[in-house]
Simulated assay, not measured.
Amino acid sequence: MTNEEALAEIREAGGFYNGHFILKTGRHCPTFLQKTFIFTDPIRTERLCIALASKIISRYGRIDCIVSPALGGIIPGYEVARVLNAKFIFLEKENGELCLRRGFHIPIHAKVLLVEDVIYSGQSSRESLKMLYKERANVVGAACLIDRSGGTVDIGAPLVSLASFYIPDYSPDEIPPELAEIPPVTPGSRGIVKTSSDSGKAANA
């Protein structure tokens, strides 16, 4: 699956919204990716994860264990692990830090790959990798369905993405006039506000 084909899948899933959005970081952007819409279709999710698994094999070879941060990474992590016939475990927050819970453990000498849904700033990935290194895991790299940084993010490990594109974002004091004219909304897991005729339109990638 090419980058353009993967982006087309995301568009068809209705994952892109144009408008004026305030991200968790406090920065403003003209396009928001509602990644959860991708996972409402199990067939599409399977198709995308099979394509990502193919890229993973080409880059890293055999993988023994997939690790993903909860909550967003669980679905793609599990699907990729299923395709690769690998063990799957996930990380959860405890006292503000990602860690292994529920009796999960990383097999000794296993080739471990971090799998995420979307990577932008890379903070979640860096926190996950820090924890895995602390556990002395044999981490070979990371993979994600969508790299929203357009390939510019540095998570401290090799990264493979299925789809890569860049969406500009701005600090509150540098918002372009045309964006400032649109009333801002704060999207995310608590909901997405559709912006009239722009709702669901694909980002220029």
Rank of each mutant, 00 (worst) to 15 (best):
V118Q: 04
N138K: 14
V118E: 06
A110Q: 03
Q123D: 11
R126W: 05
M131Q: 04
Y120P: 01
Y133N: 14
P107A: 13
R102Q: 02
H105A: 15
R102H: 12
R126A: 10
P107N: 08
A110K: 06
L113D: 09
E116C: 07
K130W: 00
A137T: 06
H109F: 15
Y133A: 07
R136T: 06
I108N: 06
L132C: 06
S121K: 13
L113I: 12
D117L: 00
S124Q: 09
K130S: 14
G103H: 04
G103L: 03
G103M: 02
D117S: 01
M131W: 04
L129P: 08
F104I: 03
K134W: 07
M131R: 08
S125N: 05
H105G: 08
S124N: 07
G122Y: 05
R102F: 07
H109A: 13
E135W: 01
L113E: 10
E116Y: 11
A110L: 09
I119T: 11
L132T: 01
M131P: 00
I106G: 02
A137M: 11
I106T: 01
S121Y: 05
L129R: 08
V112M: 02
G122L: 01
E135A: 13
K111L: 08
S124D: 05
S125G: 11
I106C: 02
E135M: 11
H105C: 12
F104N: 02
Y120H: 15
Y120N: 15
K134S: 15
A110I: 10
G103I: 06
E127W: 02
I119M: 07
R126F: 05
H105S: 15
R126T: 10
